[in-house]
C-alpha cells in the first residue's frame, strides 16, 4: 500500500510520455518507412525517462517547492528588501551561468560570429566571445528576477514589465547584427532550466502569499516570463557592443 502513490505516479509519467512515442513510431514506420534502429536502447531509454520523471515529480513536491516557499516566507518575515533582492539576483545569475543549454548555444553563437567575421577564427577569440555571452545572459536573468521580485513587493501590474521588455526587443532588433538575432530570440527560451523554474515559481507564489494585499494567482506568476524576455534584449546589446 505504501508504494501505491509511487506506482500511480509511474503510470502518470508513462501517460505523459506516450504521445512522444506515438509520434516517433508513427512517423518512423508509416511516413519515413524506415526500420527503428536500436530497439533495445529505445525501450531502456524510455523506461529511464519514465523513472526519471517520476522521481523528479516526487522530489518537486517534497523539496523544491517547499524550499522556494519557505525562503519566500523567511524573507518576508525578516523584512529586509535589500537581502531579498540580492538573493533574487544571485538565484537568477547562479542558475543560469552554469545552464548546459546556454553553454551549448553560446558556443554555437561564437562559431557563427567567427564565420561572419565579427571575431577572429582562433579558439581563444571564440571562447572569450562565448563566455561573454553566457555572462551577459546570466546577468540579464539575475536582473529580471530582481525586478520581478520588486514588482511583486510593490504590486506593479505585470504587463508594464512585459510591454517594456517587448519594446526593448523590438527597438534593439534593427540595430543588432543579423547573425545574432536568431540566437538572441532563442536565448530567451533556453535560460529557464528544470530546477530553476520550480524554485523561482515557488519563490514568486510564496512572496505573493506572504505579503498582504497580493494575490498569489495575479502577482505570484510572471518571474519566468520576464526572465525569458531580458536575455533577448541583453544578447542583442552584446552583439551591438562587440
Amino acid at each position: 500500500m505504501v508504494k501505491n502513490p509511487f506506482i500511480k505516479q509511474l503510470f502518470g509519467s508513462f501517460l505523459d510520455l506516450a504521445p512522444i512515442l506515438v509520434v516517433v513510431l508513427v512517423f518512423q514506420v508509416l511516413v519515413i518507412r524506415q526500420p527503428i534502429p536500436d530497439v533495445a536502447n529505445l525501450v531502456a531509454g524510455t523506461l529511464f525517462v519514465i523513472l526519471g520523471l517520476t522521481l523528479f515529480v516526487q522530489g518537486l513536491e517534497q523539496s523544491l517547492f517547499p524550499i522556494g516557499e519557505s525562503m519566500a516566507y523567511a524573507f518576508a518575515r525578516k523584512g529586509s528588501l535589500f537581502w531579498l533582492l540580492v538573493f533574487a539576483f544571485c538565484l537568477g545569475f547562479g542558475t543560469t551561468v552554469a545552464e548546459p543549454a546556454l553553454i551549448a548555444i553560446a558556443q554555437e553563437a561564437a562559431s557563427i560570429a567567427a564565420k561572419a567575421g565579427i571575431i577572429g577564427q582562433t579558439g581563444d577569440a571564440k571562447d572569450s566571445y562565448a563566455l561573454g555571452l553566457r555572462i551577459t545572459v546570466a546577468l540579464s536573468v539575475g536582473f529580471a528576477i530582481l525586478v520581478g521580485v520588486l514588482r511583486i513587493i510593490r504590486g506593479w501590474p505585470l504587463y508594464y514589465l512585459i510591454i517594456g521588455g517587448y519594446c526593448g526587443v523590438i527597438l534593439m532588433t534593427p540595430f543588432a547584427p543579423p547573425e545574432i538575432i536568431g540566437i538572441a530570440y532563442d536565448s530567451g527560451g533556453v535560460t529557464t532550466s528544470t530546477i530553476t523554474v520550480p524554485l523561482v515559481t515557488a519563490l514568486g507564489v510564496g512572496l505573493a502569499t506572504a505579503i498582504k494585499g497580493r494575490n498569489p494567482m495575479v502577482d505570484g506568476f510572471g518571474l519566468i516570463a520576464f526572465a525569458s524576455l531580458t536575455p533577448m534584449v541583453f544578447v542583442m546589446a552584446y552583439g551591438v557592443l562587440r
Binding site: V49, F56, G59
Partner: peptide
Amino acid sequence: GFVYVLLGIAFFLKG
C-alpha cells in the same frame, strides 16, 4: 527530495 530531483533529472536525461 533533493536527491530525488537529482536522480530524476539524471535518469531523465540519460533516457
